[in-house]
């Protein structure tokens, strides 16, 4: 399905944004590396970054299909050269670095291209975690639900890749930051930090993190989707129970 328009996103979704203050003090441009649970992600991030960062262009690492793929390929929109020149002109990039998209929105393996780009150009890499977008706009819907679903956009601390560092090391940093963001949504901010320090991500942020070494096959597909689209527990106190 095509992504919803920016206007629709603005009206229908009210995201919780964290960490944007890391960006306001640094001069642009940035390379944003995000997980990609849903089609909502690109317009959502652009909208959140409006006014803070100039000109965000989003690029997906996952293979596109059909006409779009052909267009992208022919115009060479995803070549390193194009991206580098875009950065040189001051525009920021939003890279969805997952190699393929899980059907229940969980995190999958990251393409090393983002890391490489960061090392090559010296531009700061900002990890972006998107939480709740799968539930807000599952693949079978066109527009987000009208009941203002709760989505979070969490920016991690910018990573400055030193020239000559290993792409996999930088990539690990990025993945760790994104996982931290996912854990924050589950266990609260300090809890996530503590869990990261202890390395207990599996215990705390287990369900969303899902490692790339395939827990995937453990539960049935429908069970996973069911879990991923569970409605948000409302924390508002109910006084009228009947």
């Amino acid at each position: 399905m095509a992504a919803p328009s920016r206007q629709a996103v603005r009206l229908l979704v009210n995201p919780v944004v964290r960490g944007r203050e890391y960006l306001t003090e640094l001069p642009g441009p940035f390379i944003f590396v995000a997980n990609h649970p849903s089609e909502l992600d690109a317009p959502l991030v652009s909208q959140v970054l409006q006014g803070v960062v100039r000109r965000v262009v989003s690029v997906s690492a996952a293979p596109e299909t059909g006409l779009r793929a052909a267009a992208v390929k022919s115009l060479g929109l995803r070549t390193t050269r194009t991206l580098t020149s875009m950065l040189a002109h001051g525009g920021s990039l939003l890279l969805f670095a997952e190699n393929y998209r899980a059907d229940d929105g969980t995190l999958t393996e990251f393409n090393l291209g983002a890391a490489r780009l960061g090392i090559q150009t010296g531009v700061q890499i900002v990890p972006v975690t998107l939480v709740g977008t799968y539930r807000a706009l599952p693949p079978w819907r066109r527009l987000p639900e009208t009941s203002r679903p709760k989505v979070s956009v969490i920016f991690g601390r910018p990573i400055q890749a030193a020239p000559g560092s290993e792409p996999s090391a930088v990539n690990d940093q990025i993945v760790k930051a994104i996982t931290l963001g996912l854990a924050e949504a589950e266990a609260g901010w300090y809890g996530a930090l503590r869990a990261e320090a202890e390395g207990t991500f599996a215990a705390v942020a287990g369900s969303s993190a899902g490692s790339s070494t395939g827990d995937v096959g453990d539960s049935a597909r429908w069970q996973r989707i069911w879990k991923a689209t569970a409605p948000d527990k409302s924390t508002r106190r109910t006084v009228w129970v009947k």
Partner: peptide, 21 residues
């Protein structure tokens, strides 16, 4: 007062730190 997310309970977390490397 009502919209705080599930707060972390530091002391009651079944401390995996005991077992952690």
């Amino acid at each position: 007062s009502t919209t705080h997310a599930p707060a972390h309970t530091p002391l009651t977390l079944e401390s995996p730190k005991e077992t952690t490397h």
